[in-house]
Amino acid sequence: MADDSQRNFRSVYYEKVGFRGVEEKKSLEILLKDDRLDIEKLCTFSQRFPLPSMYRILVWKVLLGIIPPHHESHSLVMKYRKEQYWDIHHALRVIRFINDSTPQVDVFLRIHQLESGKLPRNLAFPLVSCHFNTFKYSILFNFKL
């Protein structure tokens, strides 16, 4: 009980009732305060507990390697990623693989195909969806288009 006296009453109550979310959020905030995010600890945390929605995008971007674990370089890397997106988007428009009516999911798929060297030479080639890459690119380019 000595440990409980130093903790918040609400945290102790939630834990006794069966809700562990308050402590989980605090431990995630402690992990995210480090200058260099520990990817291994974040991975373990995300496997054990649900991620709060306010931190979900940041954690997934770090875990997927979209942004580096150093806080000070996040904005610069995202700026470069946005420029990269628009360059590839423009290239796909020039070679007429996408247009204004192309659904966003198909645009992400074409971007992945172009970057991985698997863009078909024929426009009539059917689109084969890959859910992981669509998810990855929708997180990667999480900004208003």
Rank of each mutant, 00 (worst) to 15 (best):
I67A: 08
W60H: 10
C43I: 04
E83N: 06
D3N: 14
H74K: 10
N122W: 08
K16V: 13
N133D: 10
L63N: 04
E83W: 03
V105Y: 01
R10T: 14
E115S: 09
E29P: 02
S53C: 08
G117L: 04
L42R: 00
L32I: 04
E83M: 07
I95A: 05
R93A: 09
K25I: 05
F9W: 09
L123V: 15
D87G: 07
E15K: 13
I95L: 12
V17C: 06
V22M: 07
D100M: 06
R96V: 15
P103C: 06
K26D: 08
N8W: 13
L58Y: 03
S75E: 07
S101V: 10
D87I: 07
S138Q: 15
C130I: 14
A2L: 12
I111R: 00
M54E: 15
I139T: 10
R96P: 08
F125E: 12
F49E: 03
D35L: 04
P120A: 07
Q113A: 05
F97R: 15
P126R: 03
T134S: 13
F135T: 15
S129F: 09
P68N: 09
P120L: 07
F49Y: 15
K33H: 04
Y80L: 09
N99C: 15
D4C: 11
Q84H: 13
C130K: 15
S75H: 03
N122R: 11
L42Y: 00
F143G: 03
C43A: 09
F143I: 02
P126A: 02
F97L: 06
Q113D: 04
H89T: 01
F135S: 14
A2D: 14
A91I: 11
H90D: 04
F143V: 04
S101E: 07
H89P: 00
R56I: 05
